[in-house]
Computed example of a mutant assay.
Amino acid sequence: MVGLTSWQALKERANLRAGQKVFIPAGSGGIGTFAIQLAKHLGATVATTTSTGNVELVRSLGADEVVDYKKQDFEKVLGGYDVVLGTLKGAELEKSVGILKPGGKIVSLIGPLDAAFADAKRLNFVLRFVFG
């Protein structure tokens, strides 16, 4: 199931290609461990978050940049990403918007960003319309 979920999100929805940068939060989780390997197979540069005890695990899976969420905030360290795999909800998903480059994509596995999100963030009219 995690393999199919990762494939659909990264390949079918995001159309992830070689040379692109993808952020996969929770890299030591079920989806994260598979998604990191798939993204590397597709030729992407991968960043992920994990706890201190799992840093070496996600590196061994192929993560190029690892953010220990107990020590750093990923949104302060990462930037210029083509794709974010939205595996976390709430504030973590909202923070992911800030690391995308213009034209980047979030493929959310937990539900869409919606009009309420746009209103809460006081986004401009165009973005409110898009999220609506």
Results as ranks from 00 to 15, higher is better:
residue 3 G to T: 06
residue 105 K to G: 14
residue 60 S to M: 08
residue 27 G to Y: 06
residue 48 T to Y: 03
residue 104 G to E: 11
residue 73 D to M: 13
residue 34 F to W: 10
residue 47 A to G: 07
residue 44 A to I: 02
residue 103 G to I: 01
residue 77 V to R: 04
residue 111 G to N: 08
residue 17 R to G: 14
residue 26 A to D: 01
residue 22 V to K: 00
residue 22 V to H: 03
residue 61 L to F: 04
residue 34 F to S: 14
residue 75 E to G: 02
residue 31 I to Y: 01
residue 79 G to T: 14
residue 57 L to P: 10
residue 31 I to F: 00
residue 26 A to E: 04
residue 102 P to F: 03
residue 18 A to I: 06
residue 106 I to G: 00
residue 47 A to C: 00
residue 11 K to V: 15
residue 101 K to W: 01
residue 124 N to Y: 07
residue 25 P to N: 10
residue 75 E to M: 03
residue 6 S to D: 12
residue 125 F to A: 12
residue 70 K to I: 13
residue 72 Q to P: 05
residue 44 A to K: 02
residue 21 K to W: 08
residue 84 V to S: 06
residue 131 F to W: 05
residue 104 G to V: 05
residue 77 V to N: 01
residue 42 L to C: 08
residue 53 G to P: 13
residue 80 G to R: 06
residue 118 A to I: 00
residue 114 D to C: 00
residue 92 E to V: 04
residue 48 T to C: 05
residue 41 H to D: 11
residue 13 R to Q: 14
residue 109 L to T: 09
residue 69 Y to D: 05
residue 2 V to E: 11
residue 109 L to M: 05
residue 50 T to W: 07
residue 82 D to A: 03
residue 99 I to A: 01
residue 53 G to R: 14
residue 130 V to E: 04
residue 80 G to Y: 05
residue 25 P to C: 04
residue 48 T to Q: 00
residue 120 A to P: 02
residue 47 A to S: 12
residue 12 E to W: 11
residue 112 P to E: 15
residue 78 L to S: 08
residue 57 L to E: 10
residue 63 A to P: 10
residue 45 T to I: 02
residue 114 D to H: 02
residue 11 K to H: 12
residue 114 D to E: 12
residue 71 K to W: 00
residue 129 F to Y: 10
